[in-house]
Write a protein that binds this DNA or RNA. Structure first.
Lengths: 151, 151
DNA sequence: CCAATCCTTTACTTTTAAGTCAAGTATATA
DNA sequence: TATATACTTGACTTAAAAGTAAAGGATTGG
């Protein structure tokens, strides 16, 4: 029960994407890689996965890069987590030496895990990417609404 | 952000220990191993770790085994989790290619992780081992108060 | 249409956590 | 006090996740 690398770095990459919203071009893997101190290969992999989940949109070629595909004021950290995690159930995952869990049917702890997940996502689904992207966002958003007038 | 094997199986072993409270002898690794479908080696390792955390007390030799070391009506799932996890902070753990995190000092997401942990443990610290050990506990507790009169 | 940029995709290596093995120590009972 | 039981402990192996490498496919601009 702790934040995984995927969750931490995936969120951080998304924040970078959001903060570059106002820029003339979409933000590149290279730029994010430099900004976060991660390898380009790794950032590429993360963003590709986030694209498959529809959170981000990549365009190839010169002046390509990634841009956000959902409104950051609506997109929540909870949704981002779900995009990054395989959501396999404990009951199928922790079966010991057997095919299926010994406690299937009479399990006292599954309801607790479910409530815990509810609690967690109840919390994370209330935090938007915009909020966590922090103070720089307001400025970036303002830039963006200027219709990208070239300097 | 999901239940780890340590957490799932550790809790399940503890539940077994609690449920055997009323028995004449402390419960053995063998017995738990059979009950949960886990190897004896693994159960041994789990319980040993829980003993180091003071949640359980093992006695060696014939008629030895494990018994609970804290009142199950007071011991919470939160405390059990803390006993099973290394509690290293994300800031020290996810530093990318650098020695320390690029965002140290100006990090917008750390406060969120902290609040999330608060939420989680706020929930888990309210659930006692007795509660999650379930219906069989009442019977076991009754047995235990009979002062272990030999059959 | 050539070359540079930049994302896409799959295969591979490394690291970390999970889970096993085996030798050791303590205890109870005959 | 010998023996079987049962926890203890550290080293080892395996499996899963993290992270890397490299070749391929689009796109822009000259």
């Amino acid at each position: 029960m702790q934040i995984s690398p995927l969750e931490e770095y995936g969120l951080r990459c998304l924040i970078q994407v959001v903060r570059c919203q106002g820029d003339r071009n979409p933000v590149t893997i290279r730029r994010i890689s430099e900004g976060e101190g991660l390898s380009m290969a790794y950032v590429g992999k993360l963003l590709f996965q986030l694209q498959k989940a529809g959170l981000v949109q990549g365009t190839r070629g010169v002046q390509g890069g990634y841009k956000i595909a959902k409104d950051p004021q609506v997109l929540t950290v909870g949704e981002i987590f779900r995009a990054l995690n395989s959501l396999d159930e404990v009951c199928d995952k922790y079966t010991g030496d057997f095919e299926s869990c010994v406690h299937a049917g009479t399990c006292g702890i599954k309801p607790m895990w479910d409530k815990l997940a509810q609690q967690m996502y109840g919390f994370l689904d209330k935090i938007t990417l915009a909020e966590v992207a922090g103070p720089r966002l307001a400025a970036a958003a303002a830039e963006a609404t200027r219709q990208d007038v070239p300097a």
